[in-house]
Design a protein around this nucleic acid. Structure first.
Length: 533
RNA sequence: GGCCCCAUCAUCUAGCGGUUAGGAUAACGCCCUUUCAAGGCGUGUACGCGGGUUCGAAUCCCGCUGGGGUCACCA
């Protein structure tokens, strides 16, 4: 338990450059659990130092999606905290001060190289296939007089860090132990950009130090810049936190997860009807495993068993298909009242957004089959649910008796909230677009279908829908009737299913009929009989 | 290409010197069944390769191979 000797302070530092990323949630989960495990704090810091990629809405969406997942932060831009501000754009003086100090101490230097020079340098290095690519350190040897001259001329400059040039740099990763890098292979990285904003490297060290971060959980992609960070901590005279580099979430082809090949937006998962607790469970399964091979577990259980020793370093493929299954498990475990609530809220979320779900360009569909199919269906489901939302809300709020009885019939058929769209509409409309052929079971005839309908109609007209044993009674009578007519039970019920539900695939027929009520069912059967002529 | 990381079924993984290498998803088959599901049962598929260490390696070491990441005034 040397990992957690006292209250830990962890942080997630996303940059507001687009949709909230699933990787952000992944790291946040581990940050949150470490904070909880130690009675510490989890902090959200917005890394908005890149003005060119800044997206206005992004920050709000990050707050929203983390909270949707239950990954609440103890300190952050919209909740405050004693170590703020929590937006890097609001902490500029701190970075300037740190940069100036480093320059003054000779640990960093001003670099006046133009973008053009750097670009040609890069091209030459690539063409030459140079062993060590990167900044050549030209300005490192500038005399104070030369610097003054450049500044007087009003030349733009950046501040670069003076990396050691000889020896090895040893860094400590929680999972991998000591990692060794050759100093000669490092380069003098930019700390402060010419627009006055810091780069990630400077900002991270300054902020993590100031905010008292004790454990940095970040993706493996940061490993190459780890030596720089290590040296930076040394340069500012701060003790580095514990670093734990987690594996990268992967696409199906094992490359780093990307939105071209896999949905990466948390909003996508939310809109598609994945439950936050299923998402958390799934994310926790990426790289971490519970003792006893438990696969379905709550955050509390995760917290109770969590240990960095149970983290697996192989990059896990983010398999939406398995998430889909997991989500189904969670849906089935919900109390009907709870599922009802979630469903209505989900419809509310989608309400008025029909246009978004009309269609999407084919080329934007993920290549992999399951995702492609799911996305097509998801758009259809979302559209249906979006337009059904007012009805559902009314049913839920004004007449709770209307929606709740339907829930048990659809609950075990759904994997995502959106999938309710396959089963719910028939309870609210009887305008079906069926064809005559739909009524005819295989190897059967239209006459037989009509016979089923008229027989069933007669039976139902004379049946007490309020009978407590209605389900069993109807089932038995149906079977008897099928036998009497000399047809298969399935063939007998099939035309009725089309008539009542409008589809060959539906929730259980008898229970659906009982929910619909006698009048409505008879009406639907009459409609079908009339339709068949 | 340089540097770095990683390596058990298709996928998520259990395993931390001795197991018939286990579970889950997906696939397939059977059962249940008025459709679709859900559920039950079952089948197939894995320790990348080569050296060591050891009485004994999926487990430890080395090399190779493979995969990934990174080489920006992005994070």
């Amino acid at each position: 338990m040397t990992d957690f000797s006292g209250p830990a302070r962890t942080r997630i530092a996303p940059s507001p450059t687009g949709d909230p990323h699933v990787g952000t949630a992944y790291m946040s989960l581990f940050d949150r659990v470490i904070a909880d495990k130690t009675g510490g704090q989890f902090i959200l810091r917005i890394e908005d130092t890149d003005r060119t990629r800044y997206v206005a809405d992004s920050e709000k969406q990050i707050f929203e999606s983390l909270r949707w997942l239950g990954l609440n932060f103890d300190e952050g831009p919209d909740v405050g905290g004693s170590k703020g501000p929590y937006r890097q754009s609001e902490r500029l003086p701190m970075y300037h001060k740190a940069a100036e100090q480093l320059v003054k101490e000779g640990k960093a230097y001003k670099c006046f190289c133009t973008e053009d020079r750097l670009e040609t340098l890069r091209k030459v290095q690539q063409a030459e296939k140079a062993k060590h690519q990167g900044y050549d350190g030209l300005c490192r040897s500038l005399t104070p007089a030369q610097v003054a001259e450049n500044e007087k001329a009003g030349k733009k400059c950046v501040v670069r860090f003076k990396m050691p040039r000889e020896g090895e740099i040893h860094v400590e990763d929680r999972f991998r132990g000591t990692l060794k890098f050759l100093a000669a292979e490092q380069q003098d990285t930019v700390l402060l950009k010419s627009d006055g904003f810091p780069t990630y490297h400077l900002a991270m060290v300054v902020d993590d130090t100031h905010m008292g971060i004790t454990h940095v959980i970040r993706a493996e992609e940061w490993l190459p810049s780890f030596p720089l960070h290590h040296e930076l901590y040394k340069a500012v005279g701060a003790k580095p936190p514990m670093f734990a580099h987690m594996p990268l979430l992967r696409n199906k082809d094992k490359s780093k997860i990307s939105k071209r090949k896999n949905p990466t937006s948390l909003l996508w998962y939310r809109d598609a009807g994945f439950l936050p607790e299923a998402m958390i469970n799934f994310l926790a399964m990426m790289g971490f495993s519970m003792p006893g091979e438990k696969e379905i577990f709550t955050y509390q259980e995760f917290l109770a068993e969590f240990s960095l020793d149970r983290v697996n370093l192989g990059g896990p493929v983010f398999n939406v298909e398995k998430l889909h299954w997991l989500n189904g498990e969670y849906i089935r475990r919900l109390k009907p009242e709870e599922l009802e609530k979630r469903l209505v809220n989900h419809a509310k979320l989608l309400m008025g957004r029909e246009r978004e779900f009309l269609d999407i360009p084919e080329e934007n569909l993920p290549k992999e089959t399951f995702l492609k199919e799911f996305e097509k269906k998801r758009l259809r489901w979302s559209r249906t649910l979006a337009s059904l939302a007012p009805t559902l809300m009314t049913a839920y709020e004004v007449n709770p008796k209307l929606l709740l009885p339907i829930i048990p019939l659809i609950q075990e058929r759904m994997h995502t909230l959106c999938e309710a769209a396959d089963y719910i509409p028939m309870f609210f409309t009887n305008e079906f677009k069926y064809a005559k052929d739909d009524f005819i079971p295989k190897k059967s005839t239209i006459e037989a279908a009509k016979k089923s309908l008229t027989e069933m109609r007669a039976m139902l007209a004379d049946f007490d829908f309020n009978d407590p044993d209605a389900k069993q009674a109807l089932d038995m009578r149906g079977r008897d009737k099928a036998e009497e007519l000399g047809v298969k039970v399935g063939d007998f019920f099939s035309p009725v299913r089309i008539a009542v539900t409008g589809s060959k695939v539906s929730p259980p027929l008898i229970e659906s009929m009982l929910v619909l009520g006698q009048d409505e069912v008879l009406k639907r059967i009459d409609n079908a009989i009339k339709f068949l002529g």
